[in-house]
Design a protein around this nucleic acid. Structure first.
Ligand code: FES
Ligand code: FES
Lengths: 151, 151
DNA sequence: GTAATTGCGGGTATAATTTATCCGCTTTAA
DNA sequence: TTAAAGCGGATAAATTATACCCGCAATTAC
């Protein structure tokens, strides 16, 4: 029942971008403690999902494809980890012999939908605000790196 | 965002036991389409978690350790897959450098708790009832195997 | 007490997935 | 034309999930 590290990394990246109009992958990787080559792969998925827009060449980097208010945890999680479905029997219909009468399936479907809705209720503008507030409290950290959005 | 097949198998086994006072692993495996050697491993976890009681020897098998009303999806999921926590940073505290100020962490913790509560709200007595009802509709299946609880 | 049954636990093998890195290519702006 | 930046394909390493096997321990029937 865990998100993968990829999902984690992706959320950190979007959170960073929510406070920074444009940034290079390398910058984000450094600031958010993510291996930069790996983050590059993740950004590709986010780009294909239409969450970020990329810009090549000198002065390039990536930006959010829409305002952070309109990007939810669900968007990012689904872009990276695929649809939120709790049961493996749910992914490939017709594979499970119990499918036609399975009460578990029905229940997990319902819970999964609720879970997805919870993810959808969290947007990155709010997250960025919360994190900014939390950062004020974390003085030690602030001294080390100098802030979230501005490095 | 998926349960493992082990979790699936475990739920099927408990569901079977909810309708059958006692059964051998082999029986459950056959009826629920689970590899029997694998199910044996899973049953061990369920046993250690105090969800089922095992009985060795002739006429042995396994039984539910308490009435199915008091066994929830959460019990089974946690016994097999470990605590319900969405974020890997949440499992081993002190590992993530962002930990002290991370807004994502806080949000995922909340969602994870709600998810756990949803799992805890489903018990196997209800599931068994639902499945029995669903089975009535699935005539084709009924003809093949003859029912859930009684083989 | 012996034999048959049934779960225990440890080990092993295989496959799948996750995590991470590398490199040549294309795009873009100066 | 050149340097910066992302693209995409390949690959390697680590971890986890799935499945199976076997000798042992416990239990019951005889
Ligand atoms: S649909 Fe496969 S076990 Fe429920
Ligand atoms: S605690 Fe590690 S990213 Fe939030």
């Amino acid at each position: 029942m865990q998100l993968t590290r990829q999902g984690d990394y992706a959320m950190r990246a979007i959170l960073f971008l929510a406070a920074s109009p444009q940034a290079r992958i390398q910058e984000i990787a450094r600031a958010q403690f993510v291996p930069k080559e790996y983050l590059a792969k993740i950004v590709q998925k986010l780009s294909q999902a239409g969450i970020v827009t990329t810009h090549r060449g000198v002065g390039g980097g990536i930006t959010l494809a829409r305002p952070p208010e309109e990007i939810t945890l669900l968007d990012v999680v689904e872009a990276i980890e695929g649809p939120v479905a709790l049961n493996s029997c749910f992914i490939r219909p017709g594979e499970c012999p119990r499918e036609s009468y399975c009460a578990i399936h029905a229940e997990l479907e319902h819970i999964g939908n609720t879970l997805a809705r919870m993810f959808a209720n969290v947007n990155f503008a709010d997250l960025a605000k919360k994190e900014a507030a939390l950062c004020k409290g974390a003085k030690a950290w602030r001294l080390e790196t100098g802030g979230v959005g501005e490095m």
